[in-house]
Design a protein around this nucleic acid. Sequence first.
DNA 1: GTCTATATTGTGATAGAC
DNA 2: GTCTATCACAATATAGAC
Lengths: 203, 203
Amino acid sequence: MTSKDKNTELKILKAAKEVFIVKGLEGSRMQEIADTAGINKSLLHYYFRTKDNLFDAVFKDAFFSMIPRIAKMFESDISIFNKIEIFVNDYIDMIVQNQYLPNFIFHETNRNPEKVVFLLKDVGLNPMLIIDIFNEEIKKGNIKPIDPKQLIINIVSMCVFPFVAKPVMKGLFFNNNEKEFKIFIEERKKQVTNFIINAISIK
Amino acid sequence: MTSKDKNTELKILKAAKEVFIVKGLEGSRMQEIADTAGINKSLLHYYFRTKDNLFDAVFKDAFFSMIPRIAKMFESDISIFNKIEIFVNDYIDMIVQNQYLPNFIFHETNRNPEKVVFLLKDVGLNPMLIIDIFNEEIKKGNIKPIDPKQLIINIVSMCVFPFVAKPVMKGLFFNNNEKEFKIFIEERKKQVTNFIINAISIK
DNA sequence: GTCTATATTGTGATAGAC
DNA sequence: GTCTATCACAATATAGAC
């Protein structure tokens, strides 16, 4: 029985992630992944048998690095406004480190929506927990009455969307200047936090 | 000199749009486009020579149906709050009619950012016009001081993002129920409008 | 476990008859 | 202008030597 080399497997996964995340499933070539990993093309098949298998491994990992994080960030014991501030800062920071992640996930989930259902069953992610947190705050009169789902989507939208629309935004607002875009994003953390707080706090 | 049949050309463009918009450039097959148009595969090449040409025609059309609309909607002569309300309603309605449009545009612009620069030069779209409108309102003291670019992104984010993230949202919040998602979006028009107004209006 | 060589299928594109 | 037949190559996948 031949056992697989964990080190090689990780090299492959790392390379596959690099390529898939930028070019997507159908835009990626096994050859390019092999080159990126510095190994032979047929080794990919030895370790993962098919392109789809390799892709699934990468996708699952990417999906879980982005989605459950939302829930985790609201689990601390500080005020709701602080929670929002920390979430906005951390989530934007995370995406800055993984610029292609949002587009990758959304493109692939749209191409293959069934996969999401399957993946979500795997992870112990219950959005009800966050929803309850917001409902509690509303009941206590700390924030305005609002559908928590709508509020959560608002928060996440404003953090993630600029990266999804980055090329269009850069062209429209920043003369395609990467540096200006970066400054905008850095400034955005404060702006979004304040925007949300203004929208939900009781005067 | 053989002249091309306008009717066939439109049939092809319509079919190409259907396929490309859902599957993207690299996920689409010329065969499927031909089948959808009810014609032969080689006719596609007769009319557009290459897949890339056909794609460019479709993409340009899609891009211009989504992006300049943002500017147009702020050109009326009503109050800024009414402008925002109308924009949110109309833009969400437009996307409901073209569910795959946002993902298509963002996926392809990320795959090929240079194309955006080129396209934006073609269209007489000056975001400065909208920015000035907001600056004017701030000066008049009608809304809180805020970077207009950040505000515009906030508004567009909240309208568009739910469709980009639709499969994930449906799985997380709505048990994959399409009807519940639709209700959520319908309700969202009011919610987003109010959210924005609360955030920027002066108390 | 890793490589070279090769099989196999898919897909964009062209030639040529009508 | 539209079709059938075919080319040429790209890309996934497998066989087999080491």
